[in-house]
Design a protein around this nucleic acid. Structure first.
Length: 584
RNA sequence: GGGGUCGUAGUUAAGCCUGGUUAUAACGCCGGCCUGUCACGCCGGAGGCCGCGAGUUCGAAGCUCGUCGACCCCGCCA
């Protein structure tokens, strides 16, 4: 139906008669001449309708409206001198239409395709129109390029691609599952996979050595700007590897993606930071390193303090930590707002101290001893005008709230280098983590994660026992995570014991993996990247929805299709399901 | 489960704080004119349950309460 794409017409085509097809992007009707911008996925080409060339075509072109689909034939020529459009690649050329056909019409549009501030719900409702917009289109074309880079890179590294089931079994200790009722097995349910974790381990035990899959995963949790109920992971597993092997491979992959999507090489190896350092200095296991503003601990300075708040914290073995804001002028209102913000984050309070020419200024300064002030000025390297924010509470609370407060300061005082891409590996995660909900220690990563050293060396100190687990962080967003797995049954059972998971329960939930571990499982480990998130970040977009063609809203609905929806009673009957409408 | 922002022609916004005649603009849409535009231009026109429901009031787009929807955040997300 066409000889060429609109955006691909070039000098070689001058003098040739071509047939092009596409959408009417814009029509400029001068009464005599009518100009039409014909658009397809490759770009725009200008078609001219003139009564001197074809009175019929010119007459009929009066009917053309936005987004009509046409097929047009004419001779390509150079535009007259002075009428070229440097703004588009085909701006030196045009075509006088000798004939054309309207292949389809288009109703009045719900929004203009070149309009920038269209509400997202309207865009999602009419996603097919939204996709015709160049910037939206670009995101999905880049996504397509990314699939190819990943497949090419991993294939070149000896990886095989597999598919794993979507109708599967609930995985342990994870997010809430999406559930699918089984008609053939009344009262039983499949779970959609949160990740192909168990299956990829089975593939290693099956001897394939290196597996990957670009795979949809499902988690029935509340949504965010960077979270969707179904999302895509680049899932990777390798045999006969340790932490450095997996990290090295993944760095190569990320660098390949970065180069294709950003058009410049990525410096590797990527910086690594221990989990404990991340928490103590940045109050987060995914620090944004596009700006500094680290927390500095000053607990030791106040061992002999008379200041009640600090005294209490030290007595309860808490932490006193500070963040220094340099070179910014803060009004009293800024300081009050800062205090307010941290209170909203759950802080008991926030202390600020300003370094002035003649000493420290703060509501609490009168409670501080001279040696404490001096030590603080020295430790924090304070200059005149610097503002110190101090929080004093339990260590975890200080880390958490100061970490979030740090992000607030970075944003508010424009300290973040928004054009930077700061990758970071977080390593040496703790193997366990206390769950307030379950009132016990649970696996921080997942229960198949291998500890550093032998699990048999566990001394009872859950909090300091380290895992062979690692996360990849980009600009404060977790974009991937993985671990080396337990590959021996005795180690795995020991792990379950420490997690207080009963043997029967373990066998019931994932006995097939445990059985396989006893049949010559090789050492193995891997990682999963959040594909949508990486794309979002590398393309500089604000929301994961911008890189997913058909995303869900925050309430999990699809505005295009109307899912989820009620289903006919007949279907419910077949599944033996009764909807009670009541909270059980 | 909790906190917040928003909802006004097809679209994007103004008006709301301080209630009062016909709810304003731009883009789009419809009609007319125009032979070098590319965000074409000029003239004219149509288009509104002010998200929905109660309440307050002589009178509500504007105040109050509820509700629905979209978004952001906390919890949650191994």
């Amino acid at each position: 139906m066409r000889d060429k794409y609109c955006g691909k017409v070039c000098t070689d085509d001058i003098g040739r008669t071509l047939t092009l097809s596409g959408w009417i992007f814009r029509r400029r009707d001068h009464g005599g001449l009518i100009f039409v911008d014909l658009r397809d996925v490759t770009g725009i080409f200008q078609v001219v309708f003139s009564p001197d060339i074809s009175p019929e075509a010119h007459e009929k072109a009066g009917e053309l409206k936005q987004e009509y689909v046409i097929q047009v034939t004419g001779k390509v020529q150079k535009r007259p001198v002075g009428t070229e459009n440097a703004g588009i690649p085909t701006g030196d050329f045009e075509m006088y239409a000798t004939s054309f056909e309207i292949l389809n019409t288009c109703k009045a549009l719900p929004f203009q395709l070149d309009e920038e501030d269209v509400s997202e719900s309207l865009r999602l409702r009419y996603r097919y129109l939204d996709m015709r917009r160049p910037l939206v289109q670009k995101a999905f074309l880049e996504r397509s390029k990314a699939y190819k880079v990943i497949r090419d890179y991993l294939a070149s590294c000896g990886f095989y691609e597999f598919e794993t089931p979507f109708l599967t079994k609930s995985t342990p200790e994870g997010a809430r599952d999406f559930i699918v009722p089984s008609r053939l097995n009344t009262g039983s349910f499949y779970a959609l996979p949160q990740s192909p974790q168990l299956f990829k381990q089975i593939l290693m035990i099956g001897g394939f050595d290196r597996y990957f899959q670009i795979v949809r995963c499902f988690r029935d949790e509340d949504l965010r700007a960077d979270r969707q109920p179904e999302f895509t992971q680049v899932d990777i597993e390798m045999s006969f590897v340790d932490v450095d092997d997996v990290i090295g491979l993944c760095e190569g992959l990320v660098a390949a993606m970065y180069e294709v999507l950003r058009g410049e090489p990525l410096q590797i190896p990527i910086k690594r930071m221990a989990y404990s350092e991340a928490m103590e200095r940045f109050g987060s296991d995914k620090p944004d390193l596009r700006f500094e503003l680290p927390m500095v601990e000053i607990t030791d300075i106040f061992q002999e303090t008379d200041f009640g708040v600090f005294k209490k914290t030290i007595g309860e073995n808490g932490a006193i930590k500070s963040i220094v804001l340099k070179g910014k002028t803060l009004s009293r209102k800024d300081l009050d707002t800062a205090v307010e913000i941290t209170k909203e984050m759950g802080a008991g309070g926030l202390i600020w101290i300003r370094k002035e020419k003649d000493g420290l200024q703060s509501p609490i300064v009168k409670y501080l001893k001279d040696n404490e002030k001096t030590a603080m000025i020295e430790r924090l390297d304070l200059s005149d005008g610097d503002v110190v924010f101090i929080m004093s509470d339990t260590r975890n609370k200080v880390n958490d709230i100061m970490g979030r407060f740090r992000l607030y300061l970075g944003e508010k005082f424009e300290l973040i280098a928004k054009d930077q891409f700061r990758f970071l590996w977080i390593v040496d995660f703790p193997l366990f983590e206390y769950s307030d909900e379950d009132k016990r220690f649970v696996a921080r990563h997942h229960p198949f994660t291998s500890p550093q050293g032998s699990i048999k060396d566990f001394t009872g100190d859950y909090e300091s026992f380290k895992a062979k687990a690692y996360d990849l962080v980009l600009n404060g967003v977790e974009i991937g995570g993985g671990s080396i797995r337990n590959y021996r049954m005795d180690d795995q059972f020991e792990m379950f014991k420490l997690l207080n998971i009963k043997e029967d329960d373990a066998i019931e939930k994932f006995g097939f993996l445990l059985e396989a571990l006893e049949m010559g499982a090789p050492p193995h480990g891997g990682l999963a990247f959040g594909f949508d998130r990486i794309l979002m970040m590398l393309l500089g977009l604000e929301s994961i929805r911008d890189v997913i063609p058909f995303p869900k809203t925050q309430k999990g609905t699809c505005l295009l299709s109307g899912a989820p929806s009620k289903i006919p009673q007949k279907q419910l009957n077949e599944l033996r399901i009764r909807v009670t409408g009541e909270q059980q």
